[in-house]
Structures are given as C-alpha cells and as structure tokens.
Design a binder for these strands. Structure first.
Lengths: 239, 239
DNA sequence: CGAACCCTTGACAGAAATCAACTAAGGTGG
DNA sequence: CCACCTTAGTTGATTTCTGTCAAGGGTTCG
C-alpha cells in the first residue's frame, strides 16, 4: 500500500488516535485495489469480511428486494463503509458497487475486531464513528417520511451547494438516476421535480445545478440541522 | 433505585460485561422515574443529557418537521434509547413520549462518557449496541424504500407474530395510528391495507390480529433476514 | 456508424393522502 | 347508572402525487 494513502487513512477520525503499532498492524494485513466503474464490491447477505475505505472515486451502497433496488448512500473519499457489519460480524445489509474508477482499501474485519479489544483509543473512535453513521441514517429516514419528493430534492440541492463552498452552482456528483433512487423516486419523477423547482430559484443545465434564488429554495426545503447537517464523517476528508 | 430494576438493567447486553464498580458508579448517579401516558421525555434538538432505559411500559420515538410528525420507533422494556446522541454529546434527532404508564431509568450521559473511557468491556458493548441500532434503522429504511404500504404491513404482522411465540394471533402492542405512522402511512391507509390483507390470510378483530394463512401472508411480505430479522437489542429483555 | 444508455416528456394508471361523515368504545361528571 | 363527550377507528368520495409505459432526443463508446 502506498504511503500516500496510508497517511490519508491515518488522518481519518476512525484511525487518528489509535496507537501507531496497532495502525501498522491493521494496515499491514490490509490491501488496496483499484476497480473500474460498475464493479460489485459487496453483495448484501454476505459475511462481513472487510472494512472498506474509499480512497479515490465513489461507491454506491444499495439494497434490493424482489427485483426492486434502491440506493441507500453514496460514499466519497476518504471514508469508510459497512463498519457496523464488520463490528458485529454480521451479514452485510447493503450491496456496494463502484460508480466510477475507484480505489478501495480493504481491512480484514477479524483484525479490526482484534484491535479494538486492545486499543481503547480505537474503540472510542469506533463508537464515535458508529454514532455518526447511525445519526446519518436516522436523518435519511426522517427526510423520507417527513418531506415530499420535491422537498427532498430542494434540500439535497441546498446541502450539496453548501458542501461545494456554498457557490451559486455545482455539478451533480452522481448520475441523476442514482440521485433519484437515493431520494426515493423514479428517474422520471426526479426529472419532473427538477422542472418544478425552476419556479423557485433553480436552473438545471445537464449535470450542473444553478441556484438563482437561495431564499426561495430554502422556503421549499426548510432546512434544519436535525435533518440537513452532515455528520462529521459524511463528507469524507478532502486531500 | 430498586434492586429489582438494577438486576434487569445489569442483564442488558450493554451493561452485562462491565466491571461491577463501574456499573455501580453509573447507576448511583442515575435515577428512575415513572410517568403517565403521553408525557414528553425528550424534545428533538435538545442536548443529550441522559441515556434512557425503559423498564416498564413503552416509549414512542418520533420526529417532526413543519407541522408533520412521524413515528420512528417504539421502545419496549428492557431497552435503552438515544445512545448515539449521548455518546456524541449531540442534539437528539428524535423526540420521545410515553405511550402508556412507563418507568424509565435515566443515566447522565457525562457519566456514560466517562465510564466508557475507563472500562474496555463497556466500550465493546457500546460498539455492539450502536452497530445493532444502526442496522435496525437501515432495515427500517430499506423497508420504506423497497416495500409498498401493504407489504410493510404484512411484514410487520409476520414479525410481530414471531416475537409473540409465533402464535396464530396476537394483540397489537400499540395503537393503530401509531403503527400507521411507524410504517409510514396515514391511519386511513392503514385501515384499508388491513382490509386488503383479509384476502390473504389475515383477520382483524379490534386490537387482535389473527393469521389464518401464514403462507399466503408470507407471499405478500416475502420476509428476508436482511429486513425482517430483529437485531439482538430490539425486542428488549423479557423478565 | 450504429448501439447502448441516460435523460426527458407525455399519457395514463395506481397508490396514497385528504376531506368528511359516521360508528364504536372509553372516560367523566352529573 | 346514565347521558355526554372525547377520541380511535372505519368508510366513502375525491384529489394529489408518484409510478409505469412508451417514445424520442442527445451523448458516449465501441
């Protein structure tokens, strides 16, 4: 594994405080790999053998049932995913696939579980990370149950703009059909929702979203920290 | 606090393995209280001062936004709730109210955070508990996005019957309007969904649900461990 | 150049919310 | 003990929203 990545991983909240020798032990057993787009990394129901860390690219977490499929989360660098399954040694609840060319570091979950038993700092960091993950899903669920499709889209746009330095425009970080599934609608419905937001301060030009009237958009989304503020782990660490 | 409750709390996975003196320290600072029905225990957005443990009765976790409201979870004895907010010292994402006369034990979250720093066993148990909480919400979210209202109701009925010794009938453990909100529909829609399930092996008599054709109901719900199996913490500890 | 694939648009169907009325059950106070 | 009131639940009529199906434009990639 390249030193470069090791440093970035080490900087993650999850690994920042642990003892050096334990970090070394963890990453010695780990390996990193680069995948092309649309590669399945994880199949839901399988045993949780590896903690995954996205170093470059992006990964879609999704779930299926009876021929239906839905996007649960999109993970960007540098972040981990499926920590909970690893910690409980339980089957993955979600599948994962790369959305683009993606570099992933895989840490064997047996090593993880061994090390959080001997490194209190790592155990504390794990608690913090899991709490953040939990709170993220709760926010996602609240949004699904409390906001309409149009409101969810408006809120997403405001969140994404904020992450992108709060500029007046940004490029969607995923395909629209993935975004549609993430916010819980069909691509057709997303398309119509986008259109309907053009009356309230939004312009769409391909993958670019332009906010022309921030106040008007906020009037639709009514953002609140209890649904819209990202948990610390969510945006990942930018290089 | 009564010895009786102390024992039950001590038996919880979260507290089972920790050192005795730490458990004593935790519970010395704690106090227990009994509330009538419909009392607000927690307001979303408030600081997470106490870990709550339901000892008797039941508590509804719910969230609101813009005048709308939705039930996120119903907690029954003996279980904890809002652990994640306590661990991160972050604002509660959900409100809580008693559904009936309920006895709750309150553990100051400062003490919690102090003790998981010095008691590795407690830290490990916390990791396990948080992972289970995370996985529960993921399952709830998957269900909302992948199943229709009718399918969610069918799945709920099968899960609840299983918890109730897999008998041919059971009593709904909450009011129907609360169940409706939990599965993400209006009370009117729940009522119609119940009716529509009468064609596929279900009978309803007030609060009692009778399963007359388990196979037929399963054909609607298509239960899968990845959505329908409870995480260990969910059903609580029965006395 | 053709073949996918993504996105959009339109027409339609289906699901669920809303609004309103009515029943039934439980609790309160006379 | 009964009349009254409140509230949960049901049912029907209607509207709104979202999904489905089908078609067409535009892009990318082999």
């Amino acid at each position: 594994m390249r030193d470069n990545e090791l440093c970035e991983i080490r900087r993650l909240p999850l690994f920042r405080a642990m003892a050096s020798e334990n970090f070394t032990a963890l990453t010695r057993a780990a390996y990193d790999q680069t995948f092309p787009a649309q590669v399945r990394l994880i199949e839901e129901g399988a045993a949780a053998d590896f903690l995954h860390i996205v170093v470059e690219g992006s990964v879609e977490l999704f779930a299926g049932w009876q021929g239906r499929e839905t996007t649960m989360q999109v993970v960007r660098p540098v972040s981990t995913f499926i920590l909970a399954a690893c910690m409980k040694d339980a089957p993955y609840l979600m599948s994962a696939r790369t959305l683009e060319k993606t570099r992933v570091v895989l840490v064997p979950s047996v090593d993880l579980r061994a090390i959080f038993r001997i490194d209190p700092e790592f155990a504390l960091a794990t608690i913090s990370e899991l709490s953040a993950c939990y709170r993220s899903v709760v926010k996602h669920t609240k949004e699904l149950k409390l906001r309409t499709a149009r409101e969810r889209l408006a809120a997403y746009i405001l969140r994404q703009a904020k992450l992108d330095n709060n500029g007046p425009s940004f490029i969607l970080p995923m395909e629209k059909r993935v975004l549609a599934s993430l916010i819980g609608v069909t691509p057709e419905s997303l398309s119509r929702a986008m259109k309907s937001l053009q009356d309230v301060g939004t312009k769409v030009d391909g993958q670019r979203i332009i906010i022309t009237d921030h106040k008007a958009l906020e009037a639709v989304a009514c953002p609140t920290p209890l649904m819209d503020d990202p948990e610390q782990h969510e945006q990942g660490l930018r290089p």
